[in-house]
């Protein structure tokens, strides 16, 4: 197996917890125990109500495409051989959005509001990335 060359998240703090759930095959976001608001990316405090009580709650994993771009000219050495590829923003049923990639369609197949669902890709022994497929 060739070495994985793309950039990886730094598994520290709340980010380690987020990706830890992904490794178990679960997409979880923080949910405030005071106002029930979902949030992403991870934050220490609820920006809606300032509560610090929260837990990782499981997302349905279902959502729709909010927007995307098609990188034709990669600007990072890790993606030099990947073009064209499409970073995609998915809006989950819970309301939070994630920046991700699709696993089962070409950039030219993308449509705003297209229904999608999460799938997981173990890119290294340590890191599993949440990606999406057509739903």
């Amino acid at each position: 197996m060739s070495e994985y060359k793309k950039p990886l998240p730094e598994l520290d703090g709340l980010t380690a917890e987020f990706y830890g759930w992904c490794k178990k095959g679960e997409l979880r976001f923080q949910r405030c125990l005071s106002c029930n608001g979902w949030r992403h990316v991870p934050r220490e405090m609820c920006p809606e109500c300032a509560s610090t009580d929260w837990e990782w709650q499981r997302s349905s994993g279902k959502g729709k495409i909010f927007t995307w771009t098609v990188a034709e000219r990669p600007m990072h050495p890790g993606f030099a051989d990947a073009a064209p590829y499409a970073p995609v923003v998915v809006e989950l049923e819970e309301g939070v959005r994630v920046l991700t990639e699709m696993t089962d369609c070409m950039p030219s197949d993308l449509v705003i509001d297209m229904p999608v669902e999460v799938t997981f890709e173990a890119v290294t022994p340590e890191v599993t990335l949440p990606k999406f497929k057509k739903s």
Partner: peptide, 26 residues
């Protein structure tokens, strides 16, 4: 900076034209 590193770069969103073109498309 940590957000970009941990939540954008792994998926190939690495440079300003890519960030802003997300808004342009929408």
């Amino acid at each position: 900076g940590g957000i970009a590193r941990d939540y954008y770069l792994p998926f190939g969103l690495t440079a300003p034209p890519q960030w802003y073109s997300l808004m342009a498309r929408r």
